[in-house]
Design a protein around this nucleic acid. Structure first.
Length: 554
RNA sequence: GCCCCCGUAGCUCAAUUGGAUAGAGCGGCGGACUUCGGAUCCGCUGGUUGGGGGUUCGAGUCCCCCCGGGGGUACCA
């Protein structure tokens, strides 16, 4: 249950009641703000509504707050409502209700915390979609973790989610990749074949060329060069995709669909969408190229769709691709996760939505800032083409999937991220992820210690210790956390919540003996075992949302 | 030049999108429990939120100017 939403409804009704009673004339549609106060002495929830209304009603905010508070009916989850400070309404959760949530969690299991703001709407999260021309970088890893965690949160919020990887298997970068690879293949067979001017310089291309030479022999050298480049490129593409897939699986990411850019051309969709735009009058031709007339939609400039050479731009592919997402596959909402180096592409995409007659709000683009790698206190520059790469795989091999996922997740997408390789690889035990996992392992240990003690008839209403209450307050926050992650498309909130939950548990553990051997403690032992079980369920769920394992032992 | 993101404790970052006395982790210093895991816990240390104006009951958050970092500004992706 989303208490916040319940409170919003309650306060709104109370406001209407107070307005009727006091004769206030309110402007229509007042949004009732409900927030989490900074300090616990201000209760569990608060609303600054009265302060917002003060000037409009020309009344002291405290008076308004009191009038509203007087109209709020008794509900099971609230202990009391107070008016504090300049005119805040403060809400305090009822201990009976909080303790009762333990039974709720035990009954619902890992479904606890799920909400239904999605109402089964179909949403697609497209993420990573790195060019299959090289291994995934740490930056791709950030993309992967943001996308996958968002997808998990959306599913928990009641959306039907599809994860998709868009394969850029057409276009100029692919061409360059094939040419480079052909050169490396030929070189591996002793030919003097130069790598293209702007080709991919990494060692991995040398290795890949040699691998193909070993597997395929000299047969491609006997083909006309153009055909050979095609053929070697195809093999390379397959190998590269397998490699990418493998690297993503190493951090627990699997896709529902891999979508080929090339398929947009093969089945004629590209032509069809271009024709559609032409009919709608969004196509102009000038300087030998075909343009998308985005200036007509408020854009600062037009964008090329088909170059003078006849080759489509990737923007053109993207239009057809998104047409496919919305019209052919019928997604209600599409979320694309892109690095900051693609931010300039966003306004074009929004213009495209309008041109296709779609509400731009149905396309969300999450832009995350780039990752700066540091080693020995100085920056490591990355480039696939020049070849100096710190791959995602190298990092995962050194520090493990759990730590990598948590570290890449625990920052707002808007935040530039410094990744200190020395810190990550040498001092990984300082990573807060272990703190969270430790809480889970510790719980498992408690149950091992409790053995087969039957606590099923434990009375959760015995739970009233301050540490127990604090833990309960954290447990019931989960639905709100899921909501905010989806509302803001900001999955880092899960990481913070996980730490706070683990902290509440560790404090409880220190101050409250769970399994006691004294006979007089029998009932509280059973009640606490229920609380601990509930905590285990929520911890495991939250770790699962982050794609981090929940170990029984560490 | 123009557009986007950022600037918060020694370091890495939060701050419920305008709310109450700006919080965590790490580092540093000092402590804790003779039964459930010390990868834990507690305390201390630490701030003119880059600077300056403004908007209002109220600003880290919004507006303007300046400083600094990153990204974009291609018939690359």
């Amino acid at each position: 249950m989303l208490i916040k939403a319940e409170l919003e409804k309650l306060v709104k009704k109370a406001l209407e009641g107070a307005a009727a009673k006091e004769g206030w004339s309110l402007s229509k549609e007042i949004k009732v703000p409900i927030e989490r106060p900074r300090e616990s002495r201000w209760g569990d929830f608060a609303s600054p509504l009265a302060m917002q209304l003060a000037s409009q009603l020309r009344m002291p905010p405290r008076k308004i707050a009191e009038a509203i508070a007087g109209q709020i009916p008794d509900v099971d989850f609230l202990e009391k409502i107070t008016v504090e400070g300049p005119g805040y309404l403060n809400f305090i959760l009822a201990p009976v209700w909080l303790a009762g949530q333990v039974e709720e969690i035990l009954a619902q299991g890992e479904a606890y915390g799920n909400i239904d703001i999605g109402r089964g709407k179909r949403v697609q999260v497209e993420f990573v979609s790195a060019n299959p021309t090289g291994p995934l970088t740490v930056g791709s890893g950030r993309n992967a973790v943001i996308g996958d965690t968002l997808a998990n949160a959306l599913a928990a919020a009641g959306y039907e989610v599809q994860r998709e990887y868009y394969i850029n298997d057409a276009g100029s970068q692919m061409r360059l990749f094939a040419e480079t690879l052909y050169a490396r293949y030929a070189q591996a067979l002793g030919r003097d074949e130069p790598v293209p001017e702007k080709g991919y310089r990494g060692q991995y291309m040398v290795d890949l060329g040699r691998e193909i030479a070993e597997e395929e022999g000299e047969r491609f050298l006997r083909l006309p060069k153009e055909e050979a480049i095609q053929a070697v490129g195809e093999i390379g593409l397959r190998k590269m995709l397998a490699w990418i897939k493998d690297d993503l699986e190493a951090i627990g990411i699997r896709y529902d669909n891999w979508f080929s850019e090339r398929s947009l051309y093969q089945d004629g969709l590209f032509e069809k969408v271009l024709e559609l735009l032409r009919k709608k009058g969004f196509i102009t031709e000038k300087e030998g190229a075909v343009w998308f007339a985005s200036t007509e939609l408020g854009e600062s400039k037009d964008n090329v769709l088909i170059r003078r050479t006849g080759e489509p731009t990737y923007f053109a592919s993207d239009i057809a691709y998104h047409y496919d997402k919305f019209f052919r596959r019928g997604f209600d909402w599409v979320i694309d996760v892109w690095g900051a180096d693609h931010q300039g592409h966003v306004p074009r995409m929004k213009a495209m939505m309008k041109a296709l007659g779609l509400d731009p709000a149905r396309l969300s683009i999450v832009i995350y800032q780039l990752v700066t790698l540091k080693r020995g206190g100085k920056e490591v520059r990355l480039s696939k083409r020049t070849g100096e790469i710190i791959t995602l795989r190298e990092l995962v091999d050194e520090v493990g999937s759990d730590a990598v996922r948590f570290f890449l997740l625990a920052r707002s997408p808007d935040s530039h991220m410094d990744f200190d390789l020395d810190l990550a690889t040498q001092r990984s035990s300082e990573n807060p992820v272990y703190y969270i996992q430790y809480a889970h392992a510790r719980i498992c240990s408690i149950f091992r210690h409790a053995g087969d003690l039957d606590y099923s008839d434990g009375d959760v209403q015995l739970l009233r210790h301050p540490r127990e209450m604090e833990l309960l307050r954290q447990l019931v926050r989960l639905p709100e956390v899921i909501e905010i992650v989806v509302a803001q498309l900001a999955p880092h909130h899960i990481a913070y919540y996980a730490q706070e939950l683990a902290n509440a548990f560790h404090l409880f553990y220190r101050d409250c003996r769970v399994v006691s051997s004294y006979p007089e403690d029998r009932e509280i032992t059973k009640a606490r075992l229920k609380l601990v079980k509930a905590t285990q369920i929520i911890l495991a769920k939250v770790l699962g949302l982050m794609g981090v394992s929940a170990p029984e032992r560490m």
